[in-house]
Design a protein around this nucleic acid. Structure first.
Lengths: 239, 239
DNA sequence: CGCCATTTTTACGGAAACGTAATAACCCGT
DNA sequence: ACGGGTTATTACGTTTCCGTAAAAATGGCG
């Protein structure tokens, strides 16, 4: 089996579920429904009790915090490698992030009750969920530091790379306005950064779309945070 | 029992352990040693396998991320209400934050093995640990957004308030240099902010020390993040 | 094919923080 | 009371990003 087909195969199921023993995996599937991730959909709402968890098969979900003072900031991003709705099994009454679909695709949707039941069986499912949650904590930590220390350009480069890893396509579709919401900045600032990256020859762009032209070059312009988060997820998924 | 003495009583044990049923609580104590939190001590090291968890009784521990590019940034802070070393039961090989003692005091130190064993008993201990971890995720998320959106002055005010809640003393001792490391800024920038807060009459300060003069005033100058994180911890600790 | 709403790009003054580094204040120990 | 090292403060030019808003371009639809 080539690397190519392995990658394709991996995208046929959520990686977290795929890592389960066959029996648990089938059980998880039976307890779930396929759910379409439509661009822009808010699948979790800040402040509301979380009713469902989502295990993305394809597509990307951003966890976004809206500040009273106005701006919104993305604190983490979840794709095939993880799940959305950790608060369910963490015993929280609610969570404070919105979860917004960034990249279209599909996900397994599991009710809170079903998820809790499976978590409490203390098996591989629990183990995988916790490992993922820990990796997620690392991602958010890194974002916290990154937001303090790194400039727009490097942060944009990181964001594009993380997004591409999860949509597995050379182009990324969204308005710069939307991107600005994710990065917690002005549209104009994002635009400036986009143009700098383009001038450097690492990305191309047109209305509603950015494409990665020179991945290695883009990685070089991204902050260390990209590599760090990648590594952490690799470790979390390996058994 | 007055509120005063209740508060004092609460500080005789770590709140997370104190919330356990007597039997589990005693068991946790037996599996732990009292550990002195000395100012500046690094009780967890980034990249190293976490050998011990710490349940602060008094004192404060900061979780700090060091970026390759130089600066250090605090991503979260833990006191009496929580514990340090969540990665142990989250099944991680290591974590990427340093844990540094910010406020002197003491803590229960429990070995990773003991903690894992107790976590896996699936009882109230597990439940409390997970609830705390979720609150901690919220804190880090908030910090991520805060670092992007709020200015030095507001962030400093928030930091002072959070620190004071955890040391339960009117003064906070540390150099502005140290503070700058926490806030991920220059000493000079911190100094400027300190002076502004002092000019506003909400804090006083002298070498190695900042004291809170007008708490309500300071709260008014802090960003929303302070109140949000407070509320989340309250909810996590209530059963 | 041209209109129109959306999206992108440009513009400009200003605020916040930075890098660097020199100077001043403070306090401990002798 | 006097050093001397640590800590705080001030200084200055520079960069990055913000707020606001106007101008330009893009592309779908009639």
């Amino acid at each position: 089996m080539t690397q190519e087909s392995e990658r394709a195969a991996a995208r046929e199921d959520n990686a977290l579920l795929a890592a389960l023993p066959t029996r648990e995996r089938n059980d998880a599937h039976r307890a779930s429904q396929l759910f379409t991730l439509n661009f822009g959909a808010r699948i979790l709402e800040a402040g509301a009790r979380t009713q469902h968890a989502y295990f993305p098969i394809q597509g990307v979900v951003s966890l976004v915090r809206t500040l009273r003072s106005g701006p919104t900031v993305e604190v983490g991003v979840v794709g095939n490698e993880g799940m959305v709705g950790v608060d369910i099994f963490m015993g929280a009454p609610a969570q404070l992030n919105d979860a917004i679909v960034q990249g279209e695709g599909s996900a397994w949707q599991m009710s809170a009750e079903h998820l809790v039941a499976r978590f409490q069986r203390n098996g591989e499912m629990q183990r995988q969920l916790l490992r993922f949650t820990n990796a997620f904590i690392t991602q958010v930590s890194q974002t916290a530091a990154c937001n303090r220390a790194h400039g727009m350009e490097a942060r944009l480069a990181r964001w594009l790379l993380m997004m591409q890893d999860r949509v597995a396509a050379p182009q990324i579709r969204m308005t710069q306005q939307f991107l600005a919401h994710m990065l917690g900045a002005r549209t104009a600032s994002v635009n400036e950064a986009v143009q700098k990256l383009e001038a450097a020859g690492v990305i191309g762009h047109r209305r509603q779309e950015i494409s990665i032209v020179d991945r290695a070059g883009l990685e070089a312009m991204a902050c260390e945070c990209y590599a760090i988060v990648c590594r952490v997820y690799e470790q979390a998924i390996l058994n």
